[in-house]
Each structure stands twice: as C-alpha cells, then as structure tokens.
C-alpha cells in the first residue's frame, strides 16, 4: 500500500481576473495521519482543498490519488469523490435538505447504496458525531456548531478514505471544538486520513501529526508537526506565530534538545505534568532564558 495516499505536484491556479492563488504547490498526504494545512487568511488553503477533491482543475501540475494521476472525467471524478470527502467551511453552503437525516442520506444514496444500508450509514455517522438526537430536526433550526457537525456527518456517511475539512473549528466555541476533535480523533483511529486547513497554530501543534505551512500559494515547508512548528522564522514569514504551548515549553526548558530527550509537551495537561515532576526532582534542569527561543 502506498504510504502517500494523496499528493499534489506543481499545482498552479489563478482565479478569473488574474488573481494567482496557487503557484507551483507541492503536497503529500500520508495515509492514516492528521495533516494540518496551516496558513494565514487568503493564502490559498481553500483553493488547495478544492483541488484535492477535483472541484478545481489546476492550470498546471497534477493531483495524484494513491500514486496515480487523477482524471477529471465523470467516471474518474466519481471514484475520486468516493475516496476523498470534502467538508466546506460554511455548513449552510452544504446542507440543502429539510431535515438532518435526509441531508446525511444524500451522499450514500449517490453512491448507489441500497436504502437499508444508507439508513444504517446515516445512523452511524450521526452517532459518531454525537448528533443522533438531531436526526429528525429541520436543518434550519440548528445552531452553527450543530450544522457544522451535520455537514461533516453528511460526508462521513460516504466513508471516504481521506476526509478533508476546511477550517473545521472556525466559529465553534471551546466545547464545540473539543467535541469535534474527539469525534475526528475516533475516525482517525479507525483509519481515516484527515486533512484540515486552519490558521490556528495552537490547534495544529496540539492535534496534527503533520503540518504543511502555506504562504502565497506555495507549501513553504511540510513535515512532522513539531519539527515544522519549531521554526519561528518561517512561521513569521507566513504571517503566523509560534504555538503558545511550544513557546512556553521552550522557555521553561522542556523544548527538547540534547540535555532533554523528551519531546516538548503537546497539551497543557502534559506541560503541567512536566512542571510538577520537575518541581519534585529539581536536579538537572535549569530553565533557559526566554531569549534562547525567539517567539
């Protein structure tokens, strides 16, 4: 099995009016991992995602599915969209049906599945996102966070191998974010590859396995989350900043490195645990000066 499930090579794309959105972009999505596309507003994240499911066709370059160049004919697009599911940023752009259950059934019915299977899939997706209680509600009566989860359930019901989400946490309250992430985590554990765009460096640091930093229509760098996000210079150049937790960890001497083999903590709880164990045994470590790390 190809470890790279989806990749882009040299993608170029301009919107009408000569607005260059992608200028020779390369990207690799590893199977079974969570990839964050990190970039400032307007840097081309949404445009890239629309290329990854074949909605937009690049003027140059290509998208590869499982190592093979993806086609744009009707048949090829069908296969592509069964493999790669896309959830738009604005749920109202995606929900068209009168009720939740009906909306979620749309994708699997298009896949030609029999009605009984579709009903099971709908129930399962709603269950995964913990919105089974909303099944019969009209879509227009839902809160933003609920709509967002219904939109995700609608794509999930098609059981894509790669689930792409455009700014999944934008507009959600902290609890909404927590619920969403735990549902997505569960999917990832079940083997679904996740790709999501965000400008939230803290989210990328806390949750993604891999990070690709986008700037001006290009992937500036891509790699494991920790390695990518430790490069403060590059983040600044992309109009981003160092994740708060990482900056704190480095300032406190938990930033990893020769004298401290443990990687820096990825969650507040992990940082607190490290602090407490350091306090209990105040031997080797002395906090570095905050200036040692340019945040």
């Amino acid at each position: 099995m190809n470890p790279v499930i989806l990749s882009a090579r040299g993608l170029e794309y301009s919107y009408p009016g000569g607005i260059v959105a992608l200028s020779g972009l390369d990207l690799e999505v590893s199977r079974g991992r969570k990839l964050a596309l990190l970039g400032a507003n307007g840097c081309g994240k949404t445009t890239l995602l629309l290329h990854l499911n074949g909605t937009l066709k690049p003027s140059r370059g290509q998208v590869l599915l499982d190592g093979a160049g993806a086609g744009y004919g009707r048949q090829a697009l069908n296969v592509w969209r069964n493999t790669v599911g896309l959830v738009l940023q604005e749920p109202d752009d995606q929900l068209f049906s009168a009720t939740v259950e009906q909306d979620v059934s749309f994708g699997p019915l298009n896949q030609g599945l029999p009605e009984a299977v579709v009903r099971a899939r709908v129930a399962e997706s709603l269950e995964t996102l913990r919105i089974a209680a909303l099944a019969e509600r009209p879509t227009h009566s839902l809160s933003f966070g609920q709509k967002k989860r219904v939109a995700i359930a609608g794509v999930l019901a098609m059981r894509p191998e790669v689930l792409i989400l455009d700014e999944p946490t934008a507009g959600l309250d902290p609890q909404g974010v927590a619920h969403l992430l735990s549902a997505l985590e569960q999917l990832c554990l079940a083997g679904t590859t996740l790709v999501f765009s965000t400008h939230d460096v803290d989210l990328a640091y806390g949750w993604a396995d891999d990070v690709a930093i986008l700037g001006q229509g290009l992937v500036v760098c891509q790699g494991e989350a920790l390695a990518t996000l430790a490069d403060a210079e590059r983040l600044r150049a992309a109009h981003l900043r160092t994740p708060t937790l990482l900056a704190l960890a480095v300032a406190l001497g938990f930033g990893g490195g020769p004298e401290d083999p443990q990687p820096p903590p990825r969650t507040p709880a992990a940082l607190i645990a490290r602090l407490q164990s350091a306090k209990a045994a105040p031997t080797a470590r002395c906090p570095r000066s905050p200036h040692a790390f340019k945040a």
Partner: peptide, 24 residues
C-alpha cells in the same frame, strides 16, 4: 455566490443532477 458554493458542496458528495434523499 451561495448557489455556486452549494454546487461545490453537492458535487463533493457525488451530485449528478438528482437531489435524492431518504424519505422517513
């Protein structure tokens, strides 16, 4: 604009010209 984006969203879920959904 919304209509255009709705079309993208529907296409991503395999829309081929028929809005078929389950009836309760």
């Amino acid at each position: 604009e919304r209509a255009r984006r709705l079309e993208v969203g529907l296409a991503a879920r395999g829309y081929v010209g028929e809005l078929r959904v389950l009836t309760p």
